[in-house]
Every structure is written in structure tokens, then in C-alpha cells.
């Protein structure tokens, strides 16, 4: 298995038997929700989709795995989504086969998907790697392996000697506590599971990593082992273990 990090996404290539392009949290239609929160911008759907097309064209994957939250509006489809989504999905499937793991925002999305494109919400293994959106407890079959998820939109704030300089999308690679606080066990066959949190492809969605750690909002983020968590930037730069980021009480 080999990984490639596509910084312009953020997107990820995992190459085993097959070459898979993985993209998380597109959130098409987020602009309507932003407006409801007092932020007014025209739709950026076209620009976002074009960016994805370019990455497909340049990486030439065998399939595209969409890790959920393709659309944004909940609890239902908006008029805009009803009209935009079929075209978006068509433009993607005309280039590459799709695997879609629905997320918590994807209510009503199934009707636009072909049967072989729709994957279970609690995940499935494709080419040796487990995938799901990340808002649910993963299916038992995924235990013990590498699990790749979206849903968390991790962002890293980097500081140098005198303060902040940068906030940027980042991956989290975390070991999973074999005995989680929920009594959940995700270790299969003796090997602990490992989770890769993929940053959001959407330009403006984002949670500070320290916030995710402090207030975990999903089964896997609650189970992650903070001592065994590492951070990687969107372009694959290895930042280091999480503990180096947590403010040191001593200074």
C-alpha cells in the first residue's frame, strides 16, 4: 500500500491493488447555511467541482471514494441541491467509478446514486482499507485495520517562536483505544485499529484539532488514543505527535 497526499485537495491517493482517490466533506450547498448564519456569499459549487475534476484528471485513479457529506443541507434536500446534485454526480461518474459512504448531511442523496455506488453508512472494506464517513460506530468488519474517515474537518494552527503564523487543513492518524470509554472495542484479531481523519475538501469547513480532541463529537474521536496520534499536513508534511501541540503546563 502506498499513499499520496494531494495538497490542492486536500485529497488522498491510496494505492494497493487499485488506485483510489479519497475525498471527504464536499458540502455542496453550504452557502445557504452560511447565509442563515449571517455570512453571504454566492455559490462556489462550480469552483469546488472544477478543483475536484482537475485532481481526478491529474491523479488518474481507478475509483473515487467520497467519504460523505457530499451535500450540506439537513434535514432534507433543498431545491438547489435537488437540481445541482445529479449534475455534479454525473460529471464525476463520467470520469471515474464512484464509491459513496453517506454522511450525516447526505439525507436524500441515495436517490441520485446507482446501486453499486452506494456504500453502507457504517463503512466497508475496499482494497484492504476500511472507509466510512465517521459519524457512526464502524461495522465490526473494519476492526483491526486502517479506517479512513471524514466528518471531522481537522485544521491545524501552527505557531513559531513568537506566535501564530498559519492555520491549515491536516490529517490525523490515530490509534484506537482497545477499551474505549463507551465499552466499545474496535480491536480485531489482536491488532488495534488505526484511524485516518481526512480534512475537508470544502474550503471553509474546519475545526481546530485541539477542539476535536477537547470536545470529541463522534464515536471514533472519542476512542482515539491521544498518546498515539500524529498530524500530517494536507501536502503530506509530517508534523509530529499530537502531544507536542497541546499547550505545555510547564511553560
Amino acid at each position: 500500500m502506498k499513499m499520496e497526499f494531494i495538497g490542492e485537495g486536500p485529497a488522498l491517493i491510496i494505492e494497493g491493488e487499485q488506485r483510489m482517490l479519497i475525498v471527504a466533506d464536499l458540502h455542496f450547498g453550504i452557502e445557504a447555511d452560511l447565509a442563515a448564519h449571517g455570512l453571504h456569499f454566492k455559490s462556489r459549487t462550480e469552483r469546488r467541482l472544477e478543483r475536484l475534476h482537475k485532481i481526478i484528471d491529474s491523479t488518474k485513479p481507478d475509483a473515487l471514494i467520497l467519504l460523505g457529506d457530499i451535500k450540506h443541507s439537513i434535514p432534507s434536500l433543498t431545491w438547489q441541491e435537488f437540481h445541482e446534485l445529479p449534475k455534479i454526480l454525473d460529471s464525476l461518474r463520467s470520469r471515474v467509478p464512484l464509491h459513496v459512504f453517506p454522511g450525516n448531511h447526505d439525507i436524500g442523496l441515495e436517490r441520485f446514486l446507482n446501486e453499486d455506488e452506494l456504500q453502507p453508512k457504517d463503512g466497508a472494506i475496499i482494497d484492504g482499507v476500511g472507509y466510512l464517513h465517521g459519524h457512526m460506530i464502524p461495522a465490526p468488519a473494519l476492526a483491526g485495520g486502517l479506517i479512513v474517515i471524514g466528518h471531522h474537518h481537522p485544521l491545524l494552527s501552527l505557531r513559531d517562536e513568537v506566535g501564530c503564523a498559519l492555520q491549515t487543513p491536516a490529517y490525523l492518524r490515530a490509534g484506537i483505544d482497545p477499551k474505549g470509554p463507551d465499552g466499545l472495542s474496535l480491536s480485531g484479531k489482536g491488532t488495534p485499529s488505526r484511524v485516518l481523519f481526512v480534512p475537508s475538501f470544502n474550503e471553509i469547513a474546519g475545526y481546530d484539532i485541539l477542539q476535536i480532541i477537547k470536545k470529541p463529537f463522534s464515536p471514533l474521536s472519542r476512542l482515539m488514543n491521544k498518546e498515539d496520534t500524529e498530524i500530517i499536513l494536507a501536502d503530506g508534511t509530517y508534523i509530529g505527535p499530537l502531544r507536542a501541540l497541546i499547550p505545555d503546563e510547564a511553560d
Binding site: L158, R159, D160, E161, A165, L166, T168, L233, T237, I239, G240, A244
Partner: peptide, 9 residues
């Protein structure tokens, strides 16, 4: 951003 990354490293 490079400098912040290097400082972190």
C-alpha cells in the same frame, strides 16, 4: 508557511 512548519519540526 514553511517557516512555521520548520519551527514546529
Amino acid at each position: 508557511a514553511d517557516h512555521a512548519v520548520i519551527a514546529t519540526l
